[in-house]
């Protein structure tokens, strides 16, 4: 009963937010509404027992997306009419795609069907044997980091590549002196506000501590390198929002951030190659320690470290890129 009420209620909320997003024209309201959408979606993931997915949604939705969106929108883009229906062609296209997607779900197994193919093939083996083979309670981490280590390596490389692509696209550093119309350069720092300074400077260590907890507790509960990287990045960027990107760069220079992005991928790859030299397959951690589970523990710890390093450095690097040319 609780499940049904929570499911239906949250889906109704999601539909309401989606309709509001469709009708809103102001970029600022869109960012805030998509934040609400992300939170409602995260709650839905919790109800579906997908806690690791919920954790990622929470970290990205609450921690980083608003920072990046607010870095790129401008007040000049605010429209005169904040609220209007989309054009009839857009509505038709949306409805058409929606009907096609609904038709696509007709072939899928019912929600909660234990005979669904996804629950028959490998899932039984993972659920039954992962604790003996890998030795950690969170099956999601076992699958993500060990059984499917190749896929996760691919994901880390994708994040690294995306970060590099943004770095390539960023404008030239040497833009010359500030123009008088460039009001961003002359905005007072938020650090001057005693409330923000007192509260948020004490929040940063807590956020970083929580990020480290998520990083190293991923074997036992929801979380892992991806989520921890985003949380750590958000903690660091908080200081940049409070003072300025330039002040943050004096503490963590952009060269180190770029180096960290590459270093994380390197750590991941080297752990895989270490397995090769010890006489096993690429990314087989069993040979890294005295026993199979000890080796798996060490391997998963190291590759999660690499993932966390790459993700957190990519987040900070994205922030630097979007703040290029500002005070």
């Amino acid at each position: 009963m609780i499940n049904v009420v929570a499911d239906v209620g949250l889906l109704c909320l999601l539909l309401t937010v989606a309709l509001a997003i469709v009708c809103t024209r102001s970029p600022l309201s869109l960012v805030l509404l998509s934040g609400i959408y992300s939170i409602a979606l995260c709650t839905l993931f919790v109800i579906l027992d997908a806690v690791d997915v919920a954790f990622t949604e929470a970290a990205v939705g609450a921690g980083i997306s608003a920072i990046l969106f607010f870095a790129v929108i401008r007040p000049e883009d605010e429209p005169v009419t904040a609220f209007s229906w989309p054009s009839s062609r857009a509505i038709l296209l949306g409805l058409g795609v929606g009907v096609l997607l609904l038709a696509g779900t007709l072939d899928m197994p019912m929600y909660g069907d234990h005979l669904a193919p996804a629950h028959q093939h490998l899932a039984l083996r993972f659920l039954g044997q992962s604790f003996e083979e890998i030795g950690i309670p969170n099956v999601v981490t076992s699958v993500l980091a060990s059984y499917r280590g190749y896929d996760t390596l691919g994901e880390v490389v994708v994040i690294f590549t995306a970060g590099v692509a943004v770095l390539i696209l960023q404008p030239d550093n040497k833009k010359g002196p500030a123009k008088p119309g460039d009001r961003d350069r002359f905005a007072p720092e938020l650090m001057g506000n005693p409330v923000l300074k007192t509260v948020l400077l004490r929040m940063i260590p807590l956020v970083v501590l929580f990020g480290l907890y998520v990083q190293f507790h991923g074997d036992y509960g929801p979380g892992g390198g991806f989520q921890a990287g985003v949380i750590l990045g958000a903690g660091v960027i908080t200081y940049g929002l409070l003072s300025s990107a330039t002040r943050l760069k004096r503490i963590i220079s952009d060269k180190w951030v770029t180096l960290g992005m590459a270093l994380g991928v390197l750590v991941y790859g080297l752990v895989g190659v270490a397995g090769l030299f010890l006489g096993a397959n690429f990314l087989d951690y069993s040979v890294l320690g005295p026993t199979q589970t000890a080796g798996q523990h060490l391997g998963i710890l190291l590759i999660e470290l690499g993932v966390g390093l790459t993700v957190s450095c990519t987040m900070v690097s994205l922030y630097y890129c979007f703040k290029q040319g500002e005070s």
Partner: peptide
């Protein structure tokens, strides 16, 4: 913990 980030941004 990270609820403040949206407001701060």
């Amino acid at each position: 913990l990270v609820n403040y980030v949206t407001s701060l941004a």
